[in-house]
Nucleic acid binder design. Structure first.
Lengths: 200, 200
DNA sequence: CAAGTTTTGTACCGACCTATCCATAATCAA
DNA sequence: TTGATTATGGATAGGTCGGTACAAAACTTG
């Protein structure tokens, strides 16, 4: 039909994702996005309507892949419910203390949490995406926790939904702690104590 | 000696604080700060060296007042250690669900958490202020928790320091949850379950 | 090859950004 | 009243912002 693209859209989204993730939405300029993706302004604006549209695409991609990975762990029927929760926490700890650490040894945090802080209050579209994602994760978390309550491995008598929100909040708290400089051992102990609330 | 100021510096700092708190550092323009404080650009730049300097002053003021209020609760010798922790959580719940809610019913969050997410990685001075504040709060939290362990009201055998980091992370998680739209009951149940980890 | 279509690079736009300059106003000390 | 000093308002500088216009390039189809 016509001249084909010389770049891969998903790769561009990944590059943009890293930039938004590290710097935040406001602090990322369109020039930063050109540099990160290696694309010219025309290619970016020809492919995405605007900086904000690109960000929405990035956020959707991030949320999908991140939640998919978490749900894969939570729905792994080869493990017990408690083991799945432990594996979820291990993912978070690894993610925050992996190869890509920021200058000063801080974790990258999570684009979901970062966007909740920076944009949720004044960007309804971003807020809606985050809400949907949170509900999705909470639903599965509640199911896993309910299963653990039924098989006796989770001894807390609290409502499964409340425990799910607690686990979700604990993960967010771990990510904030990591961005605040907490090391791997500190994050792991927060995860361990979070599990205490369910099993002790 | 010379012409006196016609405004109160602390009031200006409070007005600027609300703006940075609601919009974040990057999204707040110097014009926003003029509007919020009612001052002209000259007065702002004559009183504070720059937008960033003003932000540092704001952050210092916020951190001091916020932590002072929390430490007052944590060091209230009329209460038992567990009661102090419950009162601390009540402060957080009230703060996130008080009169000042954002459009969409979301909590304001906490300038400390917001700044950790937005700036800690690339603003060493802000990061240092946040670090000092976190250490200060963790020290007192650990002391209270240790006291509770000695008097038997906190039954967890985990290290007091680890429990302190856990409580700190839980509070951050509650603030993120609030900004994500969690209501008062949801926040309270997260607080309750957090206490379970210490006392159950 | 030629016509048609899309991508790409470059130059550019107006708006807004942080910050400064400077003239004027307001105060105090003498 | 006068001189020194600081505060204030308005204009503006210099740069960057997100976004666009346009022509050349690169491809497909006939």
């Amino acid at each position: 039909m016509a001249r084909p693209r010389t770049f891969d859209e998903d790769s561009a989204l990944d590059a943009a994702m890293r930039t938004f993730w590290e710097k935040g939405y406001e602090a990322t300029s369109t020039q930063d996005l050109c540099d990160a993706t290696g694309l010219g302004r025309s290619s970016i604006y020809n492919t995405f309507k605007s900086k904000h549209d690109l960000f929405e695409r990035v956020l959707a991609r991030y949320v999908d892949s991140m939640t998919a990975a978490q749900l894969a762990v939570l729905e792994d029927i080869r493990r017990t419910p408690v083991d799945r929760l432990r594996a979820l926490f291990a993912m978070v700890v690894d993610g925050e203390t992996g190869a890509e650490r920021r200058p000063g040894g801080r974790g990258l945090g999570c684009l979901t949490v970062n966007t909740t802080v920076e944009l949720a209050a004044r960007d309804p579209r971003a807020a809606e995406m985050l809400d949907r994602d949170t509900r999705r994760r909470l639903t599965v978390l509640r199911a896993v926790i309910g299963e653990g309550q039924r098989d006796g491995s989770i001894t807390s008598r609290r409502e499964a939904g409340a425990l799910a929100r607690f686990v979700n909040a604990a993960i967010a708290g771990m990510r904030i702690s990591s961005q605040g400089g907490a090391d791997r051992a500190a994050l792991q102990s927060v995860a361990d104590i979070t599990m205490d609330a369910l099993t002790a």
